[in-house]
Structures are given as C-alpha cells and as structure tokens.
Computed example of a mutant assay.
Amino acid sequence: MSDEEILIKRLQEAGYAAREVEKATGGVVAIAGLVTLQDDSQIFAKTLLGPDRDIFPVEAAGLTELRETGGVITPEVLCASPRLLVLEKMRPRRDDERFWERLAHTVAALHTSTTAERFGWHRPGWLGRLRQDNTWDSDGHAFLAERRILRWLSEPLVEAAFDAAERQALERLCATLPELVPDRPPCLTHGDLWQENIVATADGAPVLIDPAVSYNWPEIDLSMLWCSPRPPASDRFFALYEEITGIDGGWRDRMDLFHLRELLSVIAHDDDDWGAAEAVRKIIAPFRRDGGPATV
C-alpha cells in the first residue's frame, strides 16, 4: 500500500470521505498531504507509521498555545489522535518583502507579549519524531544546555558521529553559556520556525504550523530562520524584528550557537545529508583542547 493509500484509509476510518492526496514534500516524520474529499472540499492531513505516539496531540496543543496565548494565526485543528492529524487547508505564502514584514510583526508580538518566569512547557514535546524535554527550569542557561543541546549526545547516531574530544568540546561550550547568552526572561516560542513551517491564509497573512513549543529565549526561533535555507526577501524580517523588539545587537553572533540543537537533531534523525556534523564541528572547534583544529 502506498503512503497516499495509507493516509486515505486512515482518513476514511475517521469519517472523512477522502478521494485523493497530493503528497506534501519537506517533512521527514509523517505521511502528509493536501486531501481532496468527495465533495471537492480540501483539508490537510498527516499520519504516522509505526507504534502510536502522542506527536499529533502535542502538535495540536502547541498550535492552540500559539493561537490563544501568542496571538498567532494557526490552522484550525479538525482532528488530532495518535494516528491522524487533520487541519484546515492553508495556502502557500508569497515570498515578497511585504509577507516577511507581516511575519516580523507576528513573531515580534509573540515574543514580546508572552514573557514568563520559567523555561519549558506544561507537557513533554517532540522535535521531529524524538522527544523534547520541556521540564520547567528557572535557569535558562541550564535549560538550553541540558534540554536543548546535551540531551542529543545520548542518541545513538549522535554518539556515533562525534569522538570523545568533540563531545567534551560541546560540553565545554555549554559550560560557558552564561558568558555567551544574555540572561533574560523566556517567552513563548514556536520552536521549529524554519521556512517550511510558514504558510499563509487566503488573504496572505502568515500562518505558523508544525510547532515544537516551549518557553525559551527568542533566538531559538530566530536561529531556525537565520541558519536554514530561506529566500532573499526574508532579510526584511530580521531588520524589522530587530527594530520592533529592540533585541540586543549581538543576536546574530548567537545564531550558530542556538542552531546546535537543530543540527544535532538532524543527525539524530538520520537526516545528515547536508553537512550537519561538520557544521557542529565548526561551532565547537574553539572549545577543543586536544590539539584538534582551531583550538583556543
């Protein structure tokens, strides 16, 4: 049975008269696509192979949190179970400066209106198909180190990718986080804000999908956009976001550091086909003390 047939079957079991699926591209976790129903209306749906997990219920909860707490436009959740997620249909975005300006206002409002006292979230989450530890912590540097960076070292593929000296360099970098990252309150973050998770409404307003939410520093979101492939017009997003939020001018210097979480996740998901391990080695090189490259 093809992926599309599996998705149609599960939709039909849930009461949706699915006729055909236009399979989505870009994701590595779920079978997903734009579904046309027998009455010619359309929905977006995803399903998972393998054992049931709460990935979709957590995703639905994250969409609700972003909408109700952060004022972000997210798709209406029509169904959320361990095997199936059904959302209202959204549209592709327009990659012009106007769209990215609107997104800057959206993300800036999210980050500035949701400041909190603790880092984390009220339930464990997911980044891709692997767990995201959201245990509450009042120490942002410890939270970033232990629950967003070092947590990946125990994943088998990450363990295999780096030698002892490289692991020690990563640990040494984490020990210096208080010197590298300003200490300030966390805010609600999307958590996986790369360009594939940004779509639009019918009138062109930004819509955020596929979150991995937590209360964290805003650089978690900025780094996903900054360090992942993105269109030239997105430069307008960063300029306007900086103007609106007044974020300190050193935020660009922290982008690679915050992106470590994503790079390690890519390796852990067996998706290292674009140099994630080498990118990690470049970031941690100044923290090596074994005679390796670029030590200090």
Rank of each mutant, 00 (worst) to 15 (best):
E4Q: 14
I8D: 00
I8Y: 03
L11C: 06
Q12I: 12
A14I: 07
A24V: 00
T25I: 09
T25R: 06
V28L: 12
V28I: 12
A30T: 14
V35R: 04
V35K: 04
T36H: 00
L37D: 10
I43S: 03
A45C: 11
A45R: 02
T47C: 14
P51I: 08
R53L: 10
F56I: 06
A61F: 00
I73G: 01
M90D: 01
R93C: 07
D96V: 12
E101Y: 05
R102D: 10
L103V: 05
T106C: 13
A109W: 03
A109M: 03
A116D: 11
G125M: 03
G128I: 02
R129M: 04
L130I: 10
R131Y: 06
R131F: 07
D137K: 09
D139E: 09
G140C: 08
I149P: 01
W152F: 15
V158Y: 01
A164F: 07
Q168P: 00
A175Q: 14
A175E: 15
P178D: 11
V181S: 11
C187S: 14
L193A: 07
I198G: 08
I198M: 06
G204F: 09
D210P: 15
D210S: 11
P211V: 09
A212F: 03
S214P: 07
Y215F: 15
P218C: 03
E219N: 07
I220K: 08
S234I: 04
T245C: 02
G246I: 13
I247E: 10
I247W: 02
G249I: 02
L260A: 11
L260Y: 09
R261I: 00
E262Q: 12
A268M: 08
A268H: 11
D271G: 04
A276I: 10
V280D: 02
P286W: 04
R288F: 00
D290N: 12
G291T: 09
G292V: 00
A294M: 05
